[in-house]
Structure formats: C-alpha cells, structure tokens
Design a protein around this nucleic acid. Structure first.
Lengths: 234, 234
DNA sequence: TAGATTGTTAATCGATTAACAATC
DNA sequence: TAGATTGTTAATCGATTAACAATC
C-alpha cells in the first residue's frame, strides 16, 4: 500500500467526517495560487520595513529593502516581481506604490472581522493589540467561559460567554477565529468555530489541532519556537 | 555591481559594527548543521503529538504520526530517519524511543535559562506558561521598566528593573531573551540583550529587529500571521 | 552619457514525494 | 508465511541565487 493518511482510532482525535486526502504542512490549500507561499510569508515583513521608512524617503531599492528585512536583494526583487512590474530601473521602487501593491496582494483592503476566544493574559494582549486597524483586521468579538470575565470590556469590546459564539456568528460574520485558551480547551473551541462557519483559525494554544482540510489553520507556539531556537544554540 | 547587502544610512537602523554578509531569512546560522531546517521545524510538532498518545500505546507508525500531525507518512519517515534508524519494520516506532530521540536531537535535555523582557499582558502570559519545565527551558528573569510592576512576582519569579539585566546576566547565564515589549522599545531591548551576552532572541514585538549575524533571532508576529492567513482567504 | 538598479533567465540548491526492496 | 511498515533511492517539485541585458 502507498502512503496515504486515513482515519484511525485515537482517543483525542476529533473526527470531521471523511477527512480525505493529505493536507499540506500548514493546512493552507492555496485557493488563490498566485504567489509562491514563501513570498506570501515574506510580504508582511516588507510591509513592516516600509512602514518604518521616514516620510522623506520616496523610493527604496531592492538592496536597501533586503538589508532592512534581513533578506537578499535578488530575493526581494523576485518577490516584488510577482506583484507586477512597477520598479524603476536605476532608481528602485516608489515607496507608496510598493506599499499599495503589497497591501493589495495580501488583500489588506478587505475588512476582516476577528473573534478572540480565551481572554486570559494572552487573549487580553491580543484584544489590546493596536496593529489591527489599518491592516484590514478588526476585533468584533471576545469570548470566554469564566463568569468573572464575561461582561467586562477590552478595547471597547465586551467579553461574551463562549456559548454565544454560534449565534453571534450567525448575525456577524467572523473571518478569523483566534484561539487563546488553555491547551485543553483548544480542540473544542476549534470545532465550535468551524461549526459556526469560521474558515480561518489562528491557534495560540500549545496543542496540535485537527480541523477539516478546507479550513485555514496557522499555529503560533512558544514551546515550538523555543525548541527550534534551542536546536541552533551552541 | 552584484547583489550584496552592505551598510547604508537609515534613521531607525541600529548599527552593529561591520554587519558583513547576508544573514538568512530567520537569521539562524546553522552552527549545528546536522538536520535540514525544515525537519528541525517539524520535530516539535511530532513531540506534541507523541506526548498526547495514551500511555497504552507503545508504538506508532509513520502513517499514524502523519495523520496526527497533518503531514505525510513519507515526510515523517524521512524526518525521523535523520535521527537514526530505530524504527521496526512492519511495526513502527517505539513511542518512548521516538520521544527520546527527538528530544535529544532538539537538545531538550539541556537547561536553558530564559529571561522575559516586558511584563504586560503578553509577558505575563509567557511568564505563566507552564510548558517550559520538562522542555529544557526555565524562566530565570522577568524585566520591565514600569515602577508599578517592579517587585511583583509572577510564577515565583520577581519582576526586576530592566536596568538590572546587564548585571544579572553577568551572574546568571541567560540562554534566551524573550522580547514582549511594545514595538517602540524592542530594538533597544534587543541591543541590550545582545550586549549582555544573550545569543538567542525570541521577539514578540511587532517590529523587525536588527541584530548581529551570529545572534539567533526568531520573530513571532500576530499581524504577520493574520496577513498570511488573510491572503489565503476566499 | 555614466552609474545604478530592475526584471528575468538559467543554474543551483534544498525539500518533498513516490515507490519499493528490505525486513519485522 | 502473509501482511505491514521502515529506510532509502530516484524523481519531482519549488525556492533561492547569480548574473546580466534592459533601461531609467
């Protein structure tokens, strides 16, 4: 038999019906298959660098952007070339246009309602995060299970009981669900989000989640980052 | 002239002397160049999956581990093969041995003192993170600049004034510095950590840091994750 | 013009996948 | 033995880098 993942009985696994073919590493089926995934992962970094340039700087060369972003000039040019050909030979890229093109490519012009589940220290940090505004993301819901937290406000948004989420999702569309619960609750929350129609999930809980193949899932994990860092130490 | 990054005058750039050749994407010069970097990044995930297996499960096949980790069986086998050949044909891998081998490969047996700088919501979440213990990482220092926070305790560790960090680092070795400050303070903190002899930095502040080439730097950024997720949405 | 920098082609590199002999 | 699964070879795929003609 050839290597093909399929269902098997494991206690902690939540089963989403068929669960057919193998999803890729981060579970992101590239529906919009324009840009190479490596490029997509670097665009936000370019954006960060561009935003910090002094207002007086009107153009930037691939070389300078490479230096600022800790990448290579050839790589920068290739990445940008996927967005179109708007560089000026002998000069570089116009900062405003580059900014616009990257934001357009990433779809940051859209309005993406975000819900955060789990309002502990981490969830509070996320709720207070100010970098959303001009980046297309907007927190529309905060959820927790603890009665002491329900009814409190963070960044102008009320913390609601997690049991309200399905109903809320029916009236307010939720583009992204951020999971900031303890590990033990994460899978349950993920399942609830998926069932509520949320198609993209960002998981901060230290556990591997299982979601259907058509759900976009990204994982941010402190232990994983430290372990990777640890490998390269001394 | 060929593409080679070099110094240039940009206001927000902190200059670390020579700053010679181009560092790679994540600034991890693979001193220990045994494992492919892609494999290193997946090992923690396998670990997560293995840890959740029921005690009664003594072996696991590449197929099952692939399903649990959302990867492919062939990929799992290749990754594990870099650690040695200890699988049992027709059976799979012994769970305890696999666990040991991965932990050994990642160097999780070492004791790695960690300092967290910036004890806001995020820093507090990190300070309370329980997943350190059995993974070789141990918080030995918490630092902040706000007088109201200094002297308080989190997880049994006192929050100290950031100005103490250089002295503390002289007496207590710090393997990893975690930056959880606002973006505006991050570069300054990074510089301070580097000057205090910290060689590995995990940055949660939403800003691109510049550090010398020989410093291991990883970046965790909410906005970046959301932007990547956003790209793949509809 | 002379100098600089893009956009892209070709070469290289590394990672993934398929497939199967070895072997439990 | 018969069935299952590893470990690895070879093929494929995708990403990076070098280099340079085009051109501002």
């Amino acid at each position: 038999m050839t290597d093909t993942p399929q269902a098997a009985a494991v206690p902690w696994t939540h089963d989403f019906g068929a669960d057919p073919a193998l999803p890729d590493a981060v579970n992101l089926s590239p529906m919009k298959s324009d840009l190479p995934s490596a490029t997509v992962e670097r665009l936000p970094r370019y954006l960060r660098c561009i935003e910090r340039l002094p207002e007086s700087q009107l153009t930037i060369s691939s070389r300078e952007l490479a230096r600022l972003s800790n990448l290579t000039a050839a790589g920068v040019r290739r990445d940008i070339s996927y967005l179109g050909t708007f560089g000026i030979r002998g000069v570089g890229y116009q900062v405003t246009e580059l900014n616009d093109q990257i934001r357009h490519a990433l779809g940051l012009t859209a309005d993406r309602p975000v819900a955060v589940v789990g309002i502990g220290n981490l969830g509070s940090a996320l709720a207070n995060y100010t970098g959303f505004g001009n980046r297309g993301f907007r927190i529309v819901g905060l959820y927790d299970a603890a009665p002491t937290k329900i009814g409190t406000y963070l960044g102008g948004v009320e913390v609601r009981d997690i049991s309200r989420l399905p109903d809320d999702a029916r009236t307010t569309h939720i583009s992204v669900g951020i999971i900031a619960t303890p590990a033990g609750a994460a899978q349950q929350v993920a399942t609830m989000l998926v069932e509520a129609g949320v198609r993209s999930i960002l998981n901060f809980a230290p556990t591997v989640l299982r979601v259907p193949d058509d759900i976009h899932l990204r994982q941010v994990d402190l232990a994983t980052e430290l372990q990777i860092l640890g490998y390269y130490m001394t």
